[in-house]
Design a protein around this nucleic acid. Structure first.
Lengths: 336, 336
DNA sequence: CTGTTAGCGCCTTCAG
DNA sequence: CTGAAGGCGCTAACAG
């Protein structure tokens, strides 16, 4: 197999010219080196005929840039991150980069390993969803490779990031409930102490406060990310027993799993209970009644992150001081 | 930035030994070259102290293997492919490979470009979801790099593949409907002439035939993949007008979009109409009534594909004659 | 305008 | 057991 790949020297030999010349032409630097058009054309043609394709490994070794961007998300199987990966792929491709991905499962050790692998593969930059406990790691690694945080930021370290306006989203969602007359709104959130979760709870509290409603800490439930199946149900029951009349879910997983549980116990959303949620998974559109939600600007975030990363790669600065929050989209449906 | 990476020669200098020695130790070949344990230990320690990390570009150039697997799916944002990517990532990681991905959007030109890029990046192998019109391309490219098809196969060319048993899945789904007493079952499928779609329609027809029901070609609707929003509704209406009493959907997108339309027009699944579908997206579980479906064995397929690819990489054969069909999982819910 | 020549960082014989 | 040297394929000066 593998009928010996043709390389620069092969096509140079065939044409009786030097490798340097061929290299110049094939990397698009013919013009600026004032190589005759006839020559350039001939080189390109025979390169095609012979089925030449650069060896990016060799080129990368020589130039010191691999042309690869590393993408580290929590889980590529999660549609939220899947979409993000797709938008990042598109944008990176426009700029001539390929993307290599990895899933951290919200686990800092796994994240560290993946970063090490990416670094040893000489990625030109990394877009990462930081996880709980990765602050130290990420601030240190920042000295190795240009890095951009996406979706979340870390308070303890300075890093460039792009995320959605979590405070604003939660604020708007809860306001919808309040305007509809709901008064005892429960909040469900992951127990992972990350900026996105925190800001969403802040937005929830701010909306209540602005409406003159009491913030009842007993109505705020932090649910373990790793044990959703077993931990969610008791949390919901506890909130209901405490007399809540509506739910604010801080993300799609919590919302979706809760709908399943509501179905099982015969609770009717939109009648018995109001409901709003962060994120806009397909389920929220298909289910009856539809779920009012705040859709994050995944495309804009992804594009921005890639552009930012490329800027950072060029600038060679280890911190360019960009903290970007993009606003999402409130989608009103019948659950509220 | 980028405080100059430490390389083999640096640590060799510090220890007053040769680069070769360090290389041997650091690539785990100390034992087989009978290098003293003390020496090995010292090398490893100082390598860690100095923060050494191999340059995979250089290693790859030298050894002729990049340690990268290319994954080409239709769209990484589609949860079906997202899951596949995740399982492939896990399996590849176990075997020491990193994965680079690309989305073809079912477009053969895009697929060709991506393959070219992957080849020039010296990927050691490719796992690809073939698309309509890519037969020629894929049979030719097979001479360059080990390749495994996943999810679908091409009739016109010999290639190793792993996919789910689409015939069997469709057969089982339609049988469920038939046993429940449905007699005029409509089939909805993409109009892309691919093995998976074809086999599903074959399974549908076989189930009808076995039950002694007529196969009415007017009840089989091929819907354009690119224009689902506009083409699906008329197709559904036409089937309903033709008097169908149940629907078989050949994939999740068709099923999900149809549920939305049924909701809009007040049609009640499970009461007015029976419904079964290929794939098991979250929506089918959450919606009321739940949708009876055939879940594809994504994890098994993915694992098998990676293992197969690695075998193929080792064997250096361009065709190892493996055509694997894995059976999925029938999930009974209330829509049928 | 074109040719020559060093390496990029690593691995792998081949001598000692 | 250890050191020296060549070369993977390509680019970037620097010569002509």
């Amino acid at each position: 197999m593998k009928s010996k790949r043709v390389k620069l020297v092969d096509i140079a030999a065939k044409l009786n010219v030097s490798v340097g010349l061929v290299s110049l032409v094939l990397s698009g630097k013919a013009k600026e080196n004032r190589i005759s058009e006839a020559m350039a054309k001939k080189v390109i043609e025979t390169a095609n005929e012979m089925g030449y394709s650069v060896n990016q490994l060799a080129r990368g070794l020589r130039t010191g840039k691999s042309g690869i961007i590393g993408l580290l998300v929590a889980d590529i199987a999660n549609p939220y991150f899947g979409k993000m990966a797709r938008f990042i792929e598109n944008e990176a491709s426009k700029l001539g980069y390929q993307v290599m991905f990895g899933s951290s499962d919200e686990n800092p050790d796994k994240l560290r390993q993946l970063i090490d692998v990416f670094v040893s593969r000489q990625v030109d930059g990394i877009i990462v969803v930081p996880v709980k406990g990765s602050d130290e790691l990420l601030s240190k690694e920042a000295f190795q490779v240009p890095i951009i945080f996406i979706d979340r930021y870390c308070d303890n370290i300075q890093q460039d990031y792009v995320c959605s306006d979590n405070f604003e989203g939660a604020f708007q969602l809860c306001n919808v409930l309040i305007k509809k007359g709901f008064r005892k709104i429960a909040a469900m959130v992951y127990n992972t102490d990350l900026s996105n979760n925190r800001d969403r709870i802040k937005g929830y509290k701010a909306a209540l406060a602005e409406a003159g409603l009491d913030v009842d800490e007993n109505l705020i439930h932090e649910v373990a990310f790793q044990h959703l199946e077993t931990r969610l149900e008791p949390a919901l029951k506890s909130a209901i027993n405490a007399g809540c009349d509506a739910f604010f879910f801080a993300n799609n997983s919590l919302g979706i799993e809760s709908i399943k549980l509501f179905n099982q116990s015969g609770i009717k959303i939109g009648e018995d209970l109001g409901m709003v949620s962060f994120d806009n998974p397909e389920v929220y559109h298909v289910v009856k009644p539809g779920i009012t939600c705040y859709e994050q600007p995944i495309e804009a975030m992804s594009q921005f992150a890639v552009k930012l990363l490329c800027d950072k790669i060029k600038s060679k600065e280890k911190y360019i001081n960009v903290n970007k929050m993009l606003t999402g989209n409130l989608i009103l449906r019948d659950s509220s």
